[in-house]
Structure formats: C-alpha cells, structure tokens
C-alpha cells in the first residue's frame, strides 16, 4: 500500500485539483440535493425531513409541474428532430467539397457558440416581437404576422426555431461522420444506378447511424435541460400562460424565487430520472438500428 502511494504520488498530486472539484462541487451537492429532496428547506431554517412528501405533491397536486412536463416534452419532441435534420442537411451540403469549407464550418458553428448566451435570447425576443424583424419582413409581402412570443399558441415554436438555428455542434459531428464513409461505396452505388435518395437512405443513413445515435442522445439531454433561452424570452416566468414554462425554468423559480429548495431538489432528481430513462431507451433500441463497422459478432 505504502509502495503504491509512493509510486503514484505524483499522479495524485496532479489529479488533486480535479478531485477536490469533483467531491466538493459535484458529488457533494449531488448527494446533498438527494437528501434535500426528502426535506422541506427554505434556506433559512434547517431542512425538515418529510419523506416522500415532495414527490407525492409533485405527482398528485402540482398542476404546474405537469404543465412544465408538457411544455418540455413538446419542445424536446420538436426541437431535437428539427435540429438534427437541419444539422445533417447542412453537413451534407458542406460535405460536397466546397473550397471555402473551413470558413462555412466556422460561420455555421457560430450560432452554437452564441446560442446559449443571454444576448442571443434577447436578440430572439427582438426578432419575434410583435413589431420585430420577422413581422416587418412578413409585412413587406403583405402578411400580418402574429405576436409570436406573447401568443401562447406560438411562443414555444419560436424557441424550437432558435434550437434549430443552433445546429452547429451536431452538424460538425455529422460532417466528421460523413467524411468517414468511404467514397467508393457511393461510386459503386453510382455504377449500379442507385438514385441519390436511395443512396441516402440505404448507404448514408445506416452508415451514419452511430453518429446519429450519439447526436440524438446528446441533443435529447441538452434539450431537456434547456434553460437560459426559455428563461430570458419568458422573462423568467414561463409566460405567456405558462406556454414557456420549461421544466428547468419551473425548477429555478421554485428554488430561487420561492426558496422551496427541498421541492426544487425533488424536481431536479425527477429530471435526472427522465433523462436517464430516455438515454436508456435510446441505448436499448440502438442495437436494432445502429450498425458499428468494427463490431464483432
């Protein structure tokens, strides 16, 4: 044991900053929040153990919790496919071998870097406001645009469009995946008279499946956690009419507006369960549709 530490001491010294960070800033709060989810805690008085009380309230009496779930699931169901389709489409265009591909790659990636920022969310609000740029453009062609953000029927879709616009990161991964498919396969298909659409469905998509799977899991997790854009655009309330009451916005309000830390912790843990379930489903079904080149069987 002594020898083990003597031999590995330098490694642990280098690991120490990360280890401290992990235990104090990650694992500690995670475990604390699990405990707090079984308590009533307002940050002033000490936490009070209430057992499954928070969870029971969540599922049986909290109508806003169900609303938040509905908003979030709708968003995930729309935003994830929209972003992935957009990302794949642009990646395929860039894969055509443009000379200035580096420039385009950077330009297309930019929204993803900026996307999570507060500034972009504010910009989005301006664009889709009643007198925003979108409506001004529509007015030019004689269309009276809706008040996109303040109308509960359309507000969520403005966020889906924002999500679509942030396709850069999955696009880069798709592009790398497309580059990995040997050209010979398309040439063989070309000689065999395979139409472009069939090449896409029978060669590109199956061979890209591992990358699609990776992006799907990552984007699903990401979308469930969408916060800053929803928070800014809804003024931190989930308005109008709770149509932008994302799960994370609701959780944030419970924690930092109403100081119901115990309940917010329970919400956070349930979000973890949702994300874990979806990831598990993706992994479980992947064996039926994801083909790995170097798989052994």
């Amino acid at each position: 044991m002594k020898r083990f530490f003597a031999r590995n001491a330098p490694a642990y010294v280098f690991l120490l900053p990360w280890l401290i960070g992990f235990f104090l800033l990650a694992l500690g709060p995670i475990l604390a929040s699990l405990y707090l989810s079984f308590t009533r805690y307002d940050m002033v008085s000490a936490p009070r153990w209430i057992g499954w009380g928070n969870y029971e309230y969540m599922f049986t009496r909290d109508r806003r919790f169900w609303k938040a779930l509905e908003v979030t699931f709708t968003y995930v169901a729309l935003a994830v496919p929209a972003r992935l389709i957009m990302a794949l489409g642009v990646a395929m265009l860039l894969d055509k071998g443009l000379r200035t591909i580096g420039l385009y790659r950077a330009i297309f990636y930019l929204p993803s870097l900026l996307g999570a920022s507060i500034a972009i969310a504010i910009l989005w609000r301006q664009l889709f406001a009643a007198d925003g740029v979108v409506n001004q453009v529509l007015a030019m062609v004689g269309i009276q645009g809706a008040s996109w953000i303040t109308d509960p029927d359309t507000s969520l879709y403005t966020l889906v469009v924002l999500a679509m616009w942030q396709f850069g990161s999955p696009m880069l991964i798709f592009l790398a995946g497309l580059r990995g498919i040997p050209r010979d396969l398309y040439e063989a298909a070309e000689i065999d008279g395979t139409p472009r659409w069939r090449q896409f469905t029978r060669i590109t998509l199956p061979l890209l499946a591992p990358v699609i799977f990776f992006n799907l899991v990552l984007q699903t997790i990401d979308s469930f956690k969408t916060f800053s854009s929803a928070f800014i655009i809804s003024n931190g309330t989930g308005a109008p009419a709770d149509s932008l009451l994302f799960y994370t916005v609701y959780l944030f309000n419970e924690a930092f507006k109403f100081f119901r830390m115990g309940y917010a912790s329970a919400l956070a843990w349930f979000l973890l369960v949702i994300i874990a379930t979806f990831t598990a489903i993706a992994f479980f079904t992947s064996k039926y549709w994801v083909h790995y080149e170097n798989e052994r069987d």
């Binding site: 040997p182 010979d184 396969l185 040439e187 063989a188 000689i191 029978r202 060669i203 199956p206 061979l207 083909h291 080149e293």
Partner: peptide
C-alpha cells in the same frame, strides 16, 4: 467495376 477496397456495403 470491382474496387481496390472492395467497396462492400458494411451493413
């Protein structure tokens, strides 16, 4: 055409 890499569809 028969390709050097065989160009078989791996899936």
């Amino acid at each position: 055409m028969v390709f050097q890499s065989y160009a078989l569809y791996p899936h």
